[in-house]
């Protein structure tokens, strides 16, 4: 059973990710693939629950953003340990489109050794790979207290610190 970390807290896994063939649940929020979201858009939008959208990591946000901007949850896919395409999607969602909703990472790379990088790219919740110990994963967010890049996180950003101390 995969654990869920949201905003640096272990929380009950309340995310239902539907297969494309599966019927929508009677109650409760769920997530569909981008393809299903596009295909059944009118019907899904007519439901009274929140429907999240899961993007393939090849999706080009410039062409689909208009269909996503009112979603409260966008799911990014990290299919393999070494496939980092969704990191760029996360950055674009936060930086380019100022997306304020939840970004959830799922897939084989959602592990102890990558979630701080994901967090620093703008992802705030993590459906951990099944073999991961959520308490061990929580420690990952403290691996580095600061960073050189002004990414989309709130941690201490070194160039900003330098500018501040310069202007004192």
């Amino acid at each position: 059973m995969s654990a869920l970390i949201r905003n640096r807290q272990i929380v009950p896994n309340d995310v239902t990710i539907l297969d494309d063939e599966a019927a929508a649940p009677q109650n409760g929020n769920f997530v569909v693939s981008l393809a299903r979201w596009q295909k059944d858009n009118a019907q899904l939008r007519s439901l009274s629950v929140d429907v999240g959208v899961r993007l393939p990591n090849t999706a080009d946000l410039t062409t689909i953003w208009a269909e996503l901007e009112d979603r409260k949850l966008i799911v990014l896919d990290f299919p393999g340990f070494a496939d980092g395409r969704a990191y760029s999607q996360a950055r674009l969602l936060r930086d380019r489109y100022a997306y304020k909703g939840e970004i959830l990472a799922v897939g084989g790379a959602v592990v102890r050794d990558q979630i701080q990088g994901m967090q620093r790219s703008g992802i705030n919740s993590f459906l951990l790979r099944a073999d991961q110990d959520p308490n061990v994963c929580l420690t990952a967010f403290d691996d580095f207290a600061s960073a050189y890049q002004r990414a989309t996180d709130k941690d201490m950003v070194i160039p900003r610190e330098h500018r501040r101390s310069n202007s004192l």
Binding site: D83, Y87, G117, S121, Y148, A151, D153, I158
Partner: peptide, 13 residues
């Protein structure tokens, strides 16, 4: 070098 060090977006190219 500093910008590239632990750049979170570009560690899995």
């Amino acid at each position: 070098r500093q910008w590239a060090t632990f750049h979170p977006e570009f560690n899995w190219l």
